[in-house]
């Protein structure tokens, strides 16, 4: 039988998975939820994952309830912020990749130029005039 701590850990992990953002308010919520589950755990000798689901609800329903009741202003602000961060990250990664491609191309062109060019030599013999 899986122990209670393992069941609680799996449940909390799934809650975190369904939360679209994990900022201070959501961390607070998960902590409070964990404490509530600990209280349930202290009251109940043994329980299965399904019994925990019956008592607290499916993780996705619990998260849906949270999002439904949470402060709409906080949610929209945080979602917009994370959207901007995502855009900036994508743009930065794109810029790094383009720069790398340009640098590699330039390096290759200079190598190619060096490879295809040939060295021409001209020998000039300067002889000393011994008659003087």
């Amino acid at each position: 039988m899986i122990d209670k701590e393992q069941i609680i850990y799996s449940y909390i992990k799934e809650i975190k998975h369904y939360l679209p953002l994990y900022k201070s308010k959501e961390k607070n919520f998960v902590n409070d939820l964990q404490n509530a589950i600990m209280d349930f755990s202290n009251e109940t000798k043994e329980f299965t994952y399904n019994e925990l689901l019956n008592h607290f609800g499916e993780p996705k329903d619990l998260v849906a309830n949270y999002l439904l009741e949470a402060d709409a202003q906080h949610l929209s602000k945080e979602i917009r912020y994370s959207h901007h961060i995502k855009l900036i990250s994508i743009f930065s990664i794109g810029a790094v990749i383009v720069s790398l491609v340009i640098v590699i191309m330039l390096q290759y062109l200079s190598y190619y130029h060096a490879h295809t060019s040939y060295i021409s030599r001209e020998i000039t013999i300067i002889e000393e005039d011994n008659n003087k």
């Binding site: 404490n35 509530a36 607290f56 329903d61």
Partner: peptide
């Protein structure tokens, strides 16, 4: 405390009012 609130509401309403913790904490 949170869990106590949710359990008291459930018990005192004969399980008619069962506020999920997902709604209670927000």
């Amino acid at each position: 405390y949170g869990y106590e609130l949710s359990q008291t509401i459930k018990e005192q309403s004969d399980s008619v009012l069962n506020i999920p913790v997902g709604s209670l904490y927000p």
